[in-house]
Design a protein around this nucleic acid. Sequence first.
DNA 1: CTAACGTACAACCAAATGGTTGTAGAAACG
DNA 2: CGTTTCTACAACCATTTGGTTGTACGTTAG
Lengths: 110, 110
Amino acid sequence: MVVETLSENELDRLFQALADSTRRDIVRRVTLGGYSVSGLAALYAMSFAAVQKHVAVLERASLVTKEKHGREQIVRGNHEGLQEARRLLDGYEQIWRQRADRMADILAEG
Amino acid sequence: MVVETLSENELDRLFQALADSTRRDIVRRVTLGGYSVSGLAALYAMSFAAVQKHVAVLERASLVTKEKHGREQIVRGNHEGLQEARRLLDGYEQIWRQRADRMADILAEG
DNA sequence: CTAACGTACAACCAAATGGTTGTAGAAACG
DNA sequence: CGTTTCTACAACCATTTGGTTGTACGTTAG
């Protein structure tokens, strides 16, 4: 498995992209199956251009990919992006665990 | 264990809070051990007030807690907040897995 | 060919963000 | 006591964000 660590800027974009409920909903939907941009746009109470921008944000964050298919652009979930986010949070979790372990050691010594 | 699901707004705040490298660094540091606000401020090339705002953002996102101790305010990592974020991403992961399983089924049927 | 559809992108706007400086209060120190 | 330290918060500023409308262009349908 290729484990490339993301730059801080890439992480910024990743979490920034997830920090909007419409975009999280898009991620959920396109992970289950491909949607055209206009297909997505039909789902939300906002303009086509607004949804288009949300998709662009997700694409820049590597959470989603677009694939041209005729005159449509099919949006699909990108597993890699999500895994990166999970990986970072798992890292925090480990830091926490190590800290808890040290606490236990200290209590045991005391 | 108390598993309360966060509202969309709370998730917005959570991921928004993680979408800044300074704040991610603060989370890492205060998870390893408590820091006063000025102790944190000393670590970054920005004003005390700026760091104070970052801590406030993290606090509103439940990623960090503050505890008054004399004239200092000790900042500590809040495990619950991080777990919520991980939980959501794990949810996406499961959606992906289910999709992959269905794909495998379809291929097997074919 | 012409009309409709799907997309891209620019221009604009209000609100939020990330930073600054300055002021003020509460706690500790000499 | 007076002074320093730590914190909080307001006011301000530039940039980004999330939305809008309008225009333009390639692709499909009739």
